[in-house]
Design a protein around this nucleic acid. Structure first.
Lengths: 189, 189
DNA sequence: ATCAAAACTTGATACTGTCAAGTACGTGCA
DNA sequence: TGCACGTACTTGACAGTATCAAGTTTTGAT
């Protein structure tokens, strides 16, 4: 995207790029150091360890996602779906890390956790506004879980799953996502 | 589960167990070799390399999943959902590998791919039978994608995602899954 | 009994994350 | 000006890893 200046940005950018093309397992601190033209230990001054690097990617990713979801002013249900899936497809280098608790447990990174909560808050707020006032807490929670599941499932299946190879056959991916979104929202009254 | 006898089974079992508790990244061929009490190179006689080991896990997992989905004789829509999610929660050591294309590209493992197709075929067949005859190919494909997305999204969010920490609060996980399934199927007429 | 293949071992190489100890440099302060 | 100190970075070392190569043992069919 941009041309980063600080080593911190350079390393982060290189790592996201590797995740986007290969996956998190192929991110090596020594390789991003080489990519930045510095010694193998230089990145450790900006990230505590490998997990810290992934935490930074997660935080940036959830910030972008939360912004995307909040951006949709007076969104429709379909618009939220599409925003979620679109984020995943346009930022694979972030999305592939954000939910990988095994490589980065967000519980240990409050700043990242806050951005994650902000993203999920956008969905919860929408659902609370969208359902009529007779809805119980359980109904709201169930509905939010449902919406999130569809969007997350579709995003992961499109991005890395068996649907990926069929994307080529789909003329307009955005329209396909929108159609699934329309189908999904039919479950809500 | 069982007490495996052959080294191949022992190694496979140990790997699945590590994935279930820690994740695929913590699977080391040397560690499973140690667990089996053999030299660090012994596993290579049964699996071409690390990816081959994951392919074997995937094949076993998709076999189990396909069996589960086919097992549900004259299934309801909800039963299929529940079967999928239940499989993920009861076989995390398999499920966490089956969709990780970065550590194991099924395209290179025909036997595993066949089991995967068998699992997805179960869903596709059901959808084709479930929709009325006026449904177009696109509608069938869209519906199958939708159902799969909900089930897959819910499974991953429950297993590894932010919903996991809330599982404790959910009195009856099976009932919770069933309720989401009921909500999801309301989208289908 | 023999012989070839399968199952397994030992050894080496190149990579990784990370600890430990250094060096270079800018900035505030006396 | 000089000097102390923290930040950014380097060099070096260690243990762990996947995997190649080459050996040895075990086994099973003829």
């Amino acid at each position: 995207m941009q041309s980063p200046d600080s080593l911190q940005d350079t390393v982060l950018h290189a790592a996201v790029s590797i995740v986007a093309t290969s996956g998190p397992d192929d991110v090596s601190l020594r390789e991003v150091a080489r990519a930045a033209g510095v010694s193998h230990q230089a990145p450790y001054h900006h990230f505590k360890d490998r997990e810290g690097l992934f935490a930074a990617i997660s935080e940036q990713g959830f910030t972008l996602l939360a912004d995307s979801l909040h951006m949709a002013k007076s969104p429709t249900r379909e618009a939220l779906f599409v925003a979620y899936v679109t984020f995943a497809l346009r930022h694979p280098g972030h999305f592939r890390v954000m939910f990988r608790k095994d490589i980065c447990n967000l519980e240990h990174y409050p700043a990242a956790l806050m951005q994650a909560d902000r993203a999920f808050g956008a969905l919860a707020d929408f659902v609370a506004r969208d359902l009529d006032e007779t809805a119980t807490i359980d109904e709201i929670r169930m509905t939010a879980t449902y919406m999130w599941s569809v969007a997350h499932g579709l995003a992961t299946l499109l991005l890395d799953g068996p649907l990926e190879k069929k994307i080529g056959e789909i003329a307009d991916v955005d329209e396909f996502v929108m159609n699934v979104a329309r189908l999904a929202t039919r479950a809500l009254h």
